[in-house]
Design a protein around this nucleic acid. Structure first.
Length: 539
RNA sequence: GCCAGGGUAGCUCAGCGGUAGAGCAGGGGACUCAUAAGCCCUUGGUCGGGAGUUCAAUUCUCCCCCCUGGCACCA
């Protein structure tokens, strides 16, 4: 059953424009999605925008435009960013769409009919200014609610509740059954602890008098559903889920092809508990998903700034558009994928971005491509490669070094790359193509083609051709390995090498199956060098 | 307070029982095909602190300190 690889990200809240954290999550998902395409998997990558809710309603009112217009504007900024960042998704989720609304309402109606949703009365302190009920968490050091909440009043309000707590035992059982439900594993422990303490049901509605920018409850038009059943449902509503069918096995083929236990949902650490780890998994269970079809959650960390959290109020938001403009999409993608350990937090630093770009991309990959193509142009007639392995027979010290670029060693590098990518250790996997450039540079230094070219005799000519073939061939494999993170540069290398689709015989330009030594044919004519990564000078 | 994760070279991290490693940054050198890139050599650490187990601890155990996250609680 080679299913589609289904990958999702959190959908972004259209209350304010995107920052670097949004960019990181989507690039991470995009890189994993591209890696799967590289392996030949069919991929369904879903991302989108969360457009309902109180904060949107408030921000729209503040801006003096209707919510739907406000949402359109912000959503466009996200769409623009993904385009500029080469984030290539297969489906775009917008929670205001009709398609989504139908699924949400269908699910709610089904759960309501089954007695899983009930109406109850809530009483408590309510901030008129913030339009929300206050809990003890909001109390200040003196036990009182601070002035930031404005006028406080005691209120009673009726709402609908989902019987969350009755699923607690199921969730605990599921988590103990599946060790890799959450990645990294310490997050699973955290989640487990949180589930242990779970009590009470989940409020899923807001009276329209308080919030009307949302999806109406199908069984009570005085209410809209509040965040959970709206936002979380996107993961299935845009994947072909039929809300009328309560049995996973009878869901449309299209949906079942996509959704499985291997479905990878990428989220930030702030929304594991309780949103995804508790509410979402329980929701799926409640609407009929078997344990064998529970998705896997990949929880990433945050980019901090000088050790401090990035936040709008602190005024230390990093604007991804500015960085792309300044350094290019590939540069930003590379930095975001290489200077963080998946799951951990990292510190964002523009200096580090420049450092990594210059040393890894400009000085290693870019320069290697440049010098190789330049030497081929200078030293080989008509820019034509000659495939020969004669060097292995040679007594030359170059032979020893060249061994690292042999079929066997390349295969070993590719297998390390796969191992690390499969484990989501993107930054470690990035090290493989960089290592290959180091080997290439070592071989070039040892062989010194500029000296060989001055010598006459067939042996030095053969040696020269062999070295350049090996380097060109390794460069081609480097391009494949960097393609998930650096799609533009990978295309650039392929273009300059003149590597054509016909040569691979595959359907995609980049394929891991092509990352095998010796695919460049004898007599292959390469193109001319064009700098891939111009160095970033000064600051 | 409880549950996790972390504290190793200036920076980012690997190692996790046998007298400390990588990349980058810093210093020096030989070369020239190249984006003054690359290559070679090199400076630099009492592996957070203390105690214990062991022939031997960065690596295991215990205590403590600091950072990060989650949860809870008091005022």
């Amino acid at each position: 059953m080679p299913k589609t690889f289904f990958i999702t990200t959190a959908i972004d809240y259209t209350n304010s424009p995107p920052h670097i954290g949004h960019a990181y999550e989507k690039v991470l998902a995009d890189v994993i999605a591209r890696y799967h395409r590289l392996k030949g998997d069919k991929v369904f990558f879903l991302t989108g925008a969360d457009q309902h809710g109180q904060k949107v309603q408030q921000s729209a009112a503040k801006a003096g435009v209707p919510p739907n217009e406000f949402v359109k504007g912000i959503t466009q900024k996200f769409v623009d960013l993904w385009k500029q960042l080469d984030v290539k998704y297969d489906e775009w989720a917008e929670t205001t769409s009709e398609r989504h609304k139908k699924v949400v309402q269908g699910i709610l109606q089904r759960l309501f009919d089954a007695g899983q949703i009930y109406k109850d009365k809530q009483a408590g302190y309510y901030s008129v200014r913030q339009e929300q009920f206050l809990t003890d968490k909001e109390r200040g050091a003196d036990g009182q609610f601070g002035p930031e909440w404005g006028e406080i009043e005691f209120r009673e309000e009726e709402n609908y509740y989902f019987r969350l707590s009755q699923y607690k035992d199921w969730l605990l059982a599921y988590l103990s059954k599946r060790a890799d439900a959450i990645i990294p594993d310490f997050r699973q422990i955290e989640l487990r602890n949180a589930v242990d303490r779970l009590s009470g049901d989940l409020c899923i509605s807001r009276p329209k008098s308080r919030l009307d920018w949302g999806i109406e409850l199908p069984f009570d038009k005085e209410f809209v559903t509040y965040v959970w059943f709206d936002a979380l449902t996107n993961y299935i509503s845009f994947a072909g889920y039929d809300p009328k069918i309560d049995n996973y096995e009878r869901q449309p083929q299209e949906f079942r092809d996509r959704w499985s236990k291997d479905t990878l949902q990428i989220i930030g650490k702030d929304i594991l508990v309780p949103a995804h780890g508790i509410y979402w998994l329980i929701m799926l269970h409640a609407i009929g998903f078997p344990d064998a079809q529970m998705p896997q959650l990949l929880v990433h960390g945050w980019w901090n700034l000088g050790g401090a959290k990035m936040s709008k109020s602190a005024g230390n938001i990093i604007d991804p558009f500015v960085l792309i403009e300044k350094y290019s999409a590939d540069a930003l993608r590379y930095y975001l994928m290489s200077d963080i350990v998946t799951g951990q937090d990292a510190d964002f630093s523009e200096e580090r971005l420049i450092e990594r770009y210059n040393s890894d991309l400009a000085n290693n990959i870019g320069n290697l491509a440049n010098r190789t193509l330049n030497m081929i142009g200078r030293y080989l007639p008509d820019r034509q490669l000659r495939r020969t392995e004669a060097l292995f027979e040679s007594q030359s010290p170059v032979a020893g070094l060249l061994h690292r670029l042999s079929q066997k060693e390349i295969a070993r590098s590719v297998s390390y790359f796969k191992r690390d990518m499969d484990g989501f250790d993107i930054s470690v996997a990035n090290g493989m193509p960089i290592n290959l450039t180091l080997y290439c540079n070592g071989v070039i230094e040892e062989a010194a083609p500029w000296n060989l070219s001055k010598q006459s005799g067939t042996e030095s000519k053969t040696l020269l051709a062999s070295v350049l073939y090996h380097i060109a061939e390794t460069l081609r494999i480097i391009a494949i390995l960097i393609s998930p993170v650096l799609p533009k540069a990978a295309h650039g290398i392929f273009d300059q090498l003149n590597w054509k689709m016909e040569l691979s015989g595959g359907e995609q330009r980049f394929s891991l199956a092509d990352a095998e030594w010796g695919r460049l044919p004898d007599g292959h004519v390469v193109g001319k060098p064009v700098p891939l990564f111009p160095r970033i000078e000064g600051t």
